[in-house]
Write a protein that binds this DNA or RNA. Structure first.
Lengths: 169, 169
DNA sequence: TATTGTTATACTCTATAACTATA
DNA sequence: TATAGTTATAGAGTATAACAATA
């Protein structure tokens, strides 16, 4: 049996006599019970995202290219002439955030903005040749960064995970 | 057939003659092809997290209680006397970040820090009576905020989603 | 020497509001 | 009036590095 006890905090905001119901004289836990967190969707999604970020996505951000930049490149590749508000809708971020993303990509010389002749409020976004080249490279890096999932999941499991996540969003 | 064209961007960094391979004179896309993003785990996890955040989690943060605070309360409830570094490990955040979280909870009078007698470097964290009450309330809110998932998924699907996400982390 | 809690700092990502030019 | 892009600002949320106290 443990005889561990706990004495009052350094903080004077909560002296012992102002927290009369707090139980003491218990051993400090060694195995952590996650309680409801083990059944919380938000908690699991957050941990999964952290794990993915720490994995290979850091390799991209080293070159100043984050998820939003990568997504924009892929969308421009698949849909030449896409407008910025369409990028925002597809990536689920605000159109104001897209401005800085496209600014960076344009500075890198990977993307160009061209005014639409039909609606002069819009820019059409296009990959430059070097942008197309970089996109191909980054896509390979992204695929490799996610390839570890192929060891964690069967093909059917991976497919269902994507399906279920898609239903959430 | 569309006759839409695109003229040069306002930015002088990328004049037309420095991006010679960019294709023009194409109609602006209306349906967006997500390309590889539709099969990207990181992309789907990120969108799912955004959807969850926008849903009910905002209701908590209105009271200054975010996911980290909620997780800490639940952990303290299930494991009285837990140390801060154990909170950090369980929630997958840095121990430095836990300090501010516990500070807030202590200011609210929901949690108290007590020095361990066995290892005087550590604090044991305990819920106060009002902290226990608030935790129960917040847990109900969290369960309700995630209850929409019960309409999106069958019990088996929800269970598998949690299992697969857990395998990622 | 290593660990626990702390402080200070900075970075990433995103949202909000107000503005402009076009529609 | 509404929409597309822009600007400026601010807010989460987290990481990193260095430090004091303790092990």
């Amino acid at each position: 049996m443990s005889t561990e006890t706990f004495s009052t905090s350094k903080s004077s905001l909560q002296p012992a006599d102002r927290a009369p119901g707090v139980r003491q004289d218990r051993p400090a836990p060694t195995v952590v019970d996650m309680g409801i967190l083990s059944r919380s969707l938000a908690f699991h999604v957050r941990k999964a995202q952290l794990a993915l970020q720490r994995r290979g996505l850091r390799s991209m951000s080293a070159s100043g290219v984050g998820p939003a930049e990568f997504g924009t490149l892929v969308l421009c590749e698949q849909n030449p002439g896409l407008a910025q508000f369409q990028i925002a809708a597809a990536l689920d971020i605000d159109k104001a955030s897209v401005v800085a993303v496209v600014d960076r990509l344009e500075e890198l010389g990977w993307v160009v903005r061209r005014r639409s002749s039909q609606d002069r409020r819009r820019y059409g976004l296009f990959l430059t040749p070097s942008g197309a080249q970089q996109t191909q490279l980054l896509r390979q890096q992204a695929e490799q960064a996610e390839s570890f999932a192929l060891e964690l999941f069967s093909g059917a499991e991976l497919q269902q995970l994507l399906t279920l996540l898609g239903r959430l969003a």
